[in-house]
């Protein structure tokens, strides 16, 4: 599993970082979320799915 954050939609709510801090981090300068890892470890996939479904802007896309 891979995941992307659409920077034009992200508003920095940071729910994803709260749910999967090892995968998402809000940027110090613009406050928007970045993806920290290329391939999501299998044991973190459910956390990432939860983060994606919780995003108020629906800015997170999961790529199989």
């Amino acid at each position: 599993m891979r995941v992307t954050v659409d920077q034009s939609h992200c508003q920095g709510h940071a729910l994803c970082e709260g749910m999967a801090p090892d995968v998402f981090e809000t940027d110090d300068d613009d406050g928007r979320a970045r993806v920290l890892v290329d391939v999501i470890p299998p044991d973190r996939e459910s956390a990432v799915e939860l983060a994606a479904s919780s995003c108020p802007e629906r800015a997170i896309t999961i790529l199989a």
Partner: peptide, 11 residues
Amino acid sequence: RAITLPAFSPK
């Protein structure tokens, strides 16, 4: 919002 967003990050 972008003006103050970094000041409200989790970090």
